[in-house]
Write a protein that binds this DNA or RNA. Structure first.
Length: 493
RNA sequence: GGCGGUAUCGUCUAGGGGACUAGGACACGGCCCUCUCAAGGCUGGAACACGGGUUCGAAUCCCGUUACCGCUACCA
């Protein structure tokens, strides 16, 4: 099913959305969420999701940032549908659109210098008045304009702000109206002295060319919107529908910045967050399915997504909930899809090699099955996997203090445990439990008193998966060797 | 300053005139489960910014106030 968008200003149009970041840094979580919502909308209604790199600020744009945006989007799995559009490559069309404005008489050349304007602005500020360009250049007669241009005098092109009011039906905010007199500083500049377009001009030109029918972006663009609408109208182009998403703030309610910790999606990737968890978490920041569902797969998000449940309120980025969400997805996904993500991390940590993982795949799969439910991040998984992958385990001092407090008592328990386990015919949970519980009874104690010292002997820690699972994962040989080593340690300390 | 936007537990949110004694989730506390840790189940505390209207009835609609955020460039 392919839907179309219908707007009061235009007939039905194919659904085309775009994510248009400027490459001046990494992919910010706010940008990622904007991209996600655009993508979700496109997927849900059978539209196209496009990517445009707004690289017209040569001073701040970098290739590294562009790469970071691609990598972030790819990690999240937010694939765009057509070739990437680089705004900087469209200068000719931007200028042509400005020429069209000039020709239609909705824009005019202005010879005022930046210094003059700055002085006027200062003056207005001193008088506590809002500065508005006084249109002095609009009254220069055409012949004079021609002459000054011919003489090589620098000029900018200004859009002539019409009287009246500009209104649109925002998909998330409802009707928003601006009196035209309050839009910016009056007749705003669309083309700089150097012949390059100003942001709003470039955006409108590109969105027209890309046939964007739904502009979904951060609500910091609300005040740009009336200017852009005026430009669309002056250019005779159909208006897109606008949807302004709320911002994402840090824990202190201020704009999310480096002070709040990680703001780049790439950082969360390296912190061991799963892309599907990131997406799920981001989706819930500013949108809800309208009921109590929280943990969703990507497919469910597409299915459930709808514009009517978009929030107007800025959300605070809570990393604790992100981690919880990641834990949910960790236990949700199969060990087989988790393994390819974890294997490189295990290798990086020097715990194994990719070849080893390939070689003992079934074993690694069952290990992950045990660990994923008690981990919140991929880093947790790696940390918890350590005792099963290295032989030189260390005894955690707290574990020793708590579970091996009485050395001889612990040694007794371990000796009995070792003997019992060694006699087992089948190295499986049921016989283990049966035999060890019987041992506990014979020793006049409880299972816990046997299991806990054994846990320290096997893993060096007080926490681990179920003790029989640990024994199985370690295997008979290694388990018994570890108990022997613990016995030696207990005798020596 | 001007203009615009926003306002429900600490946080994310449900709610759209009566179903609200305001629901869920994160976090925090308790209990259960239990060999530990998670997960899970049960449970506790915790919110409609304030003031006026409209209405038989307002968290929901209107107005004002306050607070916060954004924009206010020849940045994007």
């Amino acid at each position: 099913m392919v839907y179309t968008l219908v707007n009061s200003m235009s007939s039905a149009r194919p659904i085309r959305l775009r994510f248009a970041p400027s490459p001046t840094g990494y992919l910010h979580v706010g940008g990622a969420r904007t991209a996600l919502f655009n993508w979700l909308f496109a997927k849900k209604y059978g539209g196209q999701f496009l990517l445009r790199i707004e690289d017209t600020d040569k001073a701040r744009s970098t290739e590294a940032s562009t790469t970071a945006i691609y990598e972030g989007l790819e990690w999240l799995g937010l694939q765009w549908d057509e070739d990437v559009v680089y705004q900087g490559a469209n200068l000719d069309r931007h200028q042509a659109h400005v020429a069209q404005l000039l020709k239609a008489g909705t824009a005019y050349r202005c010879f005022c210098t930046a210094a003059e304007l700055e002085a006027q602005r200062k003056e207005a500020h001193a008088l506590k008045e809002a500065f508005r360009y006084d249109r002095r250049c609009d009254s220069i007669d055409p012949a004079t304009v021609e002459k000054r241009v011919a003489a090589g005098e620098p000029f900018v092109v200004r859009f002539r702000m019409p009287e009246g009011t500009t209104t649109w039906d925002d998909l998330v905010h409802g009707t928003i109206t601006f009196p035209n007199k309050d839009i910016g500083e009056g007749d705003f500049i669309v083309l700089r002295t150097d012949g390059t377009p100003i942001y709003n001009m470039a955006v409108v030109s590109d969105d027209i060319a890309m046939e964007i029918s739904l502009v979904m972006r951060g609500d910091d663009h609300i005040s740009n919107t009336p200017k852009q609408i005026l430009l669309y109208e002056a250019l005779g182009a159909p208006l897109p529908i606008f949807a302004h998403l709320p911002m994402i703030h840090g824990m202190d309610g201020k704009k999310l910045s480096k002070r709040h910790g990680a703001t780049a999606v790439g950082e969360y990737q390296h912190l061991g967050i799963l892309p599907q968890a990131m997406l799920n978490f981001l989706a819930l920041l500013g949108w809800s399915p309208g009921n109590d569902i929280e943990v969703m797969t990507l497919e469910q998000m597409i299915e459930l997504f709808d514009a009517s449940h978009l929030s107007k309120k800025a959300a605070i980025f809570d990393t604790q909930k992100l981690e919880w969400m990641n834990g949910q997805h960790l236990s949700l996904i199969g060990a087989d899809v988790l393994l390819p993500r974890v294997a490189p991390l295990l290798a990086d940590a020097g715990l194994t090699t990719l070849q080893d993982v390939e070689h003992r795949k079934a074993w690694f799969l069952s290990l992950l099955e045990l660990l994923k439910v008690r981990a919140r991040t991929l880093d947790d998984v790696v940390r918890q996997a350590s005792p099963y992958l290295r032989d030189d385990i260390e005894y955690d001092p707290d574990a020793v203090a708590k579970q091996w407090k009485d050395r001889s008592l612990s040694a007794d328990a371990l000796r009995g445990t070792r003997e019992t386990l060694a006699q087992l015919e089948r190295w499986e949970p049921e016989p283990m439990e049966e035999a060890l519980r019987a041992l506990a009874e014979r020793m006049g104690t409880t299972g816990g008193k046997i299991f806990q010292p054994m846990r320290v002997a096997l893993t060096g820690l007080t926490v681990s998966p179920g003790i029989f699972d640990v024994l199985v994962m370690l295997g008979r040989e290694r388990s018994l060797a570890r108990i022997d080593r613990a016995l030696e340690w207990l005798a020596a300390n």
